[in-house]
Design a protein around this nucleic acid. Structure first.
Length: 450
RNA sequence: GGGGGCGUAGUGUAGCCUGGUUCAACACGCCUGCCUGUCACGCAGGAGAUCGCGGGUUCAAAUCCCGUCGCUCCCGCCA
């Protein structure tokens, strides 16, 4: 068997991606990838090689002259990383693209053990636990590659839209001296000479940028929540997509921005990856019409009651209610998205602005996609006295958040924004049952490895 | 944190309800041999599991009971 080569003529030959083999018929090429299948017959040996662009066949005829090569192929293992050099020939019979590489040289760059801990070929899906333990092997499955290609497209499109609209991209600290939201629990750190915490959200810092006069900002970054949440849509560490914009008239401006922003991102995904997503996940990427439906919470409750569902909590939605509302909106309004507006103050954060003529109702909203909550947003309260009063009303102690309250003492413009769950979007977009499927390396209440 | 389900060879499952004649079956993978080009290659043979862990009931437990650990789903929390 040939050893990995750091010198030699083959390293000077450029690599050909498997998807490009068709254009190289008649040429000598070097392809590099993983051995998906070995079909070793008496006269001919076939390898199916997988790289990130597709599958291709490499073939070697058995003969006395090529005994060394034939032996090397015979002792190959599935999922080994290999370099194959040979001539591309057209062969209409070959199912992987009608071309094959006639192997002249094979280099095993990285051997794989004979017994794999999971089935990379995807014929059968291993247990969730096994797949997470061996995530790097699980990620070799092409649908997982497509998931992260899709996520890259989504993020890129979001940034494109923001930049076009004059936003700045920020990176706020993830180490904090106090909580940034009330509800969720904090990860506490021991390094500092006082309690410190991992950021649950960039909420305070993106608002700080409004007080700083940055006008419009966004951030895509990690958020940490020490919640023992055992659901298919929670993680203790997740990627939060956040934006904040100044000089708005109301939260309607924020919703109007978000729906166009999402429409743009989904347009891009459909253009660039729609057919592959259709083929791989059996999902049609639907570019949503704007405006999205908006339904005040009071009406939502009426709709759910009419459908026989009484939410347990007053003024808020439970997961069953969210699913039901998603079905209602799909059936009655023909839309996958719905903004739920006018949440009662008692179920919203202290910094959500309230209606002047109805102080029990906030200018806060959630966005549901196919019945899954993907966004919470609001116009923020930017008037210092009002904000302090609302914080007190919620029973918060002011000292730890005084630095935040100070943002509003020296001329802060009216503003609003939202937080958006990237993995939740991916989960809904690709119709996956679980956030772990679409998270590169999942972190949960009991998961710290790999 | 509360409630339900699951945990059997490298992988995926069956057997568990109605304990014993199966201390374990099937498929994929693996090993050996064969096979004129395969493409989920095919054919023949073979190895591989003390049935998560601990305890109990019983003459006898993968099968029943208790505990424990892990995973998972529902609820709560939320992105």
């Amino acid at each position: 068997m040939t050893k990995p080569a750091s010198r030699g003529v083959q390293t000077r030959m450029g690599r050909t991606l498997i998807k490009d083999l068709r254009q190289q018929v008649g040429q000598d090429v070097k392809i590099q990838g993983w051995v998906k299948t070995i079909r070793d017959q008496k006269r001919v040996q076939f390898l199916i090689i997988r790289d990130h662009t597709g599958l291709g066949q490499a073939t070697a005829e058995r003969s006395d002259d090529t005994a060394a090569l034939n032996d090397a192929i015979a002792s190959l293992t599935r999922e080994s990383a290999v370099t194959v050099i040979g001539k591309v020939v057209e062969n209409p019979v070959v199912k992987t693209g009608g071309v094959e590489v006639l192997i002249r040289e094979l280099v095993v760059e990285g051997v794989a053990d004979r017994l794999l801990p999971l089935d990379v070929s995807g014929a059968k899906e291993s247990n969730p636990e096994v797949r997470l333990n061996w995530r790097f092997l699980d990620l070799r499955r092409p649908e997982n590659l497509l998931t992260f290609q899709t996520q890259t497209t989504v993020e890129h499109a979001m940034r494109e839209y923001w930049l076009r609209e004059g936003f700045l991209e920020l990176h706020s600290p993830k180490l904090m001296g106090s909580a940034s939201e009330s509800g969720a629990e904090l990860f506490e750190l021991t390094y500092f000479d006082r309690p410190a915490y991992l950021a649950q959200s960039p909420q305070f810092y993106k608002q700080m940028a409004m007080a700083a006069g940055f006008d419009r900002v966004f951030e895509i970054g990690p958020a940490f929540r020490a919640d023992p949440s055992f659901t298919p849509r929670h993680a203790t560490e997740f990627t939060s997509v956040d934006m904040e914009m100044s000089w708005i008239e109301s939260h309607e401006d924020v919703m109007a921005f978000e729906e166009r922003w999402l429409q743009y991102a989904l347009t891009r995904v459909k253009e660039q990856l729609g057919p592959r997503i259709r083929e791989t996940f059996d999902v049609d990427v639907v570019v949503p019409d704007v405006p999205f439906p908006r339904i005040p919470m009071q009406d939502v409750l009426r709709i759910l009651t009419a459908r026989g569902h009484i939410p347990e909590r007053k003024g808020d939605l439970d997961p069953a209610g969210e699913r039901l509302l998603g079905e209602h909106v799909a059936g009655e309004l023909g839309h996958q998205f719905v903004f739920v507006t006018d949440y009662p103050a008692e179920v919203r954060a202290f910094y959500h602005m309230r209606y002047p003529d109805a102080p029990a109702i906030t200018k806060g909203f959630d966005l549901l996609w196919k019945g899954v909550e993907v966004t919470t947003g609001a116009q923020r309260e930017h008037r210092y006295e009002v904000l302090v009063a609302q914080a007190k009303e919620k029973g918060l102690s002011l000292e730890p958040i005084q630095f935040y309250l100070d943002f509003f003492k020296y001329g802060c413009p009216p503003h609003g924004g939202f937080g958006f769950g990237l993995s939740r979007m991916m989960m809904v977009l690709l119709n996956q049952p679980n956030i772990r499927e679409v998270t590169y390396i999942y972190r949960g209440p009991t998961r710290l490895y790999p």
